[in-house]
């Protein structure tokens, strides 16, 4: 029987969503064109070539190395792309993803990642074209609700704040906002205006966000209501405490 990763325990909808994010088995909800994505990332002009930091690996004449032969470089590394980042901020009011699960999604399903996981935001550094592919996956699928999440390179403030009256997460730099029934973004992730209004689709309703979230909340799915998860977390902490602090003992 083929090995099937289990990813995460639990019987609640939150545990199921966490498994979905880790396994990349996520539903695509919207289309964002490559040009629009490049514009909101703000690292290069849409349609321009990828600037490089070194010549393509094929032209560099790499030394003989068994590891290099075994590990196929990512497309970005092969072409010599620059390292660039994307950073998401997620509201604690039932945003679909959390910083940890964005990092799990990146580390399990993509190569050449350097995720940084913070309390209210998650940054990931990769080769530029690899980073765009990764960001596109997270931005187009159920991992992101653009009302409750945001692409924010700086001034990420919003994760732990109350929502605005229109149900969206506060954005100090007004990069994206609700216009009609859609979220539009007319600045890049660091707040510099761009030459277009990128339509990021409809935000999720409160009920849908509660269904798709990976946040345990007392007013939705409480962490303590999932006995299997509690047992798992306690086991991890117990073993970490017993053996992690002093493995030789």
């Amino acid at each position: 029987m083929a090995y099937k990763p289990q990813y995460y325990p639990g019987n609640t909808s939150v545990a199921e969503n966490r498994r979905k994010h880790m396994s990349n088995n996520v539903e695509k909800l919207r289309d964002i064109s490559d040009e629009d994505l490049t514009a909101i990332l703000g690292h290069r002009a849409p349609g321009s070539d990828y600037p490089s930091t070194h010549p393509p690996l094929a032209e560099m004449g790499e030394p003989e190395c068994s590891v290099r032969e075994v590990v196929e470089p990512t497309p970005g590394a092969k072409a010599g792309d620059r390292i660039r980042y994307s950073q998401f901020s997620d509201s604690m009011y039932n945003a679909p993803s959390t910083p940890y699960w964005r990092s799990y999604h990146a580390a399990i399903n993509f190569r050449g990642v350097d995720p940084g996981t913070l309390s209210g935001r998650q940054v990931n550094e990769m080769r530029e074209r690899d980073m765009e592919a990764y960001t596109k996956r997270q931005a187009e699928t159920e991992m992101t609700d653009w009302g409750l999440s945001g692409l924010r390179g700086c001034t990420v403030h919003g994760h732990s704040l109350r929502l605005q009256e229109d149900g969206t997460m506060f954005d100090m730099l007004d990069r994206r906002r609700l216009e009609g029934d859609s979220i539009v973004m007319d600045k890049d992730q660091v707040g510099v205006p761009i030459d277009r209004k990128v339509n990021l689709g409809k935000p999720m309703s409160e009920a849908e966000a509660a269904k798709r979230t990976t946040f345990y909340r007392v007013d939705n799915v409480a962490f303590r209501s999932d006995a299997e998860v509690v047992e798992h977390v306690q086991t991890v902490w117990e073993r970490r405490t017993r053996y992690g602090f002093k493995p030789q003992a």
Binding site: T155, M172, R177, D188, V190
Partner: peptide, 21 residues
Amino acid sequence: GKNLPRKITCGPGTGADVNHP
């Protein structure tokens, strides 16, 4: 409440107008 700055104060966009509605 939450501050609404006139200009961006950090990052590559420092100095750009925010024009928060």
